[in-house]
């Protein structure tokens, strides 16, 4: 089993986005999906930025960054 970092996750597409919205209980028209996916990608980028923070130990993986 491999676990990807947040930055390595695959990007959502219209197809996967629609499926995930349906899993969440929302049936969204196809024409709305493009904007939603664009915003979801932005959130993924933010999540990837937070990969630098190790939540388990609250220890910084990039030691020395804090001046």
């Amino acid at each position: 089993m491999g676990v990807l970092s947040r930055g390595e996750r695959s990007r959502p597409t219209v197809k996967t986005g629609k499926a995930r919205l349906q899993e969440a209980g929302l049936d969204v028209n196809d024409e709305l999906l493009e904007g939603i996916i664009r915003n979801l990608v932005v959130l993924q980028v933010h999540a990837a930025t937070l990969d630098q923070f190790d939540a388990k130990s609250h220890h910084w993986m990039m030691e020395g960054r804090y001046g």
Binding site: A24, L26, V28, G35, I36, L43, A47, F53
Partner: peptide, 30 residues
């Protein structure tokens, strides 16, 4: 009624609904 929202707000909120809980918790811990 997603149509009652302005398009920009609706798209941002719907994207938020798809965020993994892990991402939110990571943000809170940080």
């Amino acid at each position: 009624d997603p149509g009652i929202y302005g398009a920009t707000t609706r798209d941002r909120l719907l994207a938020g609904l798809l965020m993994p809980a892990d991402d939110y918790l990571q943000a809170i811990r940080f």
